[in-house]
């Protein structure tokens, strides 16, 4: 067993449910590398997941406490949990692109607006893959998938100048980054920064599904094919304001860093409660 996995994961859940060669396994390990680099142990971090490939791969693998929410709702569940946990406990959520940016987006934005101390790692496999390969909001424009046999026709969150991370930034997030799973060191650095953020942080990691997306959209279902394709489409984020029309491809880098700029959700709430109690002559 991989030594990092042996240190942090439940042996009976290793190597997990992802297909052989899947970038999700790389991502899982990159997250562990970041946790290890921060010197965190099982009792320092509660690990939540959603459903789909990312949820299945990562749920109940962590030796510490772990939970899974329903599709798209884990941000609300984690917000409630945040209320009950002491501030030094980290909450990490590993979720998919559908969970974060489609069905769960309103809840995710509410968590960003409140600046809830959560770290969301989005394993972006470019669509709905655990259901067999349907297009989602991060599927590149025109892609052929099982639910877009003639190519996708509706815009996603990365088409025509849109960028979903811009929405999350405007909602009030403290730290946002996007990388491909092949940018190992950058993913580790961003996850470390995210876990060190006192507030809402999110790292989107594009890995693409070679089994479905590779076969359906690229015509080649091998790991090598999707990795080559991802590498060829990776462009660095331009510093400064976002270009009016974003270049096609995966714009990677730290998207937004406003760590410490806004008070965190539970801090704000605890201050509010303390102020009410002080006014009422009680000590908290």
């Amino acid at each position: 067993m991989d030594p990092l996995a042996g240190k942090y994961l439940r042996p009976e859940k290793w190597p997990g449910t992802a297909c052989p060669g899947c970038g999700l396994r790389l991502l899982h390990r990159e997250v562990l590398t970041a946790i290890d680099a921060l010197g965190l142990g099982p009792s320092d971090l509660v690990w939540g997941t959603a459903i789909g490939c990312t949820g299945r791969q990562t749920y109940a693998t962590w030796r510490g406490d772990t939970f899974a929410g329903t599709h798209g709702r884990v941000y609300a569940l984690a917000t409630g949990l945040r209320l009950a946990l002491p501030r030094e406990k980290r909450i990490l959520l590993t979720v998919g692109d559908g969970d974060a940016f489609t069905i769960g987006l309103p809840h995710l934005l509410a968590a960003a607006r409140r600046n809830v101390d959560l770290t969301v790692v989005v394993g972006d496999n470019l669509g709905y893959q655990s259901t067999g390969g349907q297009y989602g909001v991060t599927t590149p424009a025109g892609s052929r998938t099982d639910s877009s046999p003639y190519g996708t026709w509706e815009p996603g969150w990365s088409d025509g100048g849109l960028d979903v991370l811009g929405i999350v930034r405007e909602a009030g997030a403290s730290f946002l980054a996007r990388h491909t799973v092949l940018q190992r060191d950058a993913v580790v650095e961003s996850v470390k920064a995210a876990l060190g953020t006192r507030g809402f942080s999110l790292v989107q990691v594009v890995y693409g599904c070679h089994v479905h997306y590779g076969a359906q959209a690229l015509g080649d279902g091998t790991v090598g094919a999707i990795q080559g394709w991802i590498r060829a489409r990776t462009v660095p984020l331009e510093p400064g304001p976002a270009p009016e029309v974003a270049p096609a491809g995966f714009r990677t880098g730290v998207f937004h860093d406003a760590r410490g700029a806004r008070p965190e959700f539970t801090e704000r709430l605890r201050d509010h409660v303390a102020a009410v109690r002080a006014r009422a002559g009680r000590t908290s």
Binding site: R10, G41, P42, S43, D44, V46, T49, I51, Y59, A60, R63, G64, D65, T66, F67, A68, G69, T70, L81, A84, L85, P86, K89
Partner: peptide, 12 residues
């Protein structure tokens, strides 16, 4: 959750 004893709880 929160004590690090390996609690696990999900919708599955």
């Amino acid at each position: 959750l929160g004590r690090g004893a390996g609690g696990a709880c999900s919708d599955w």
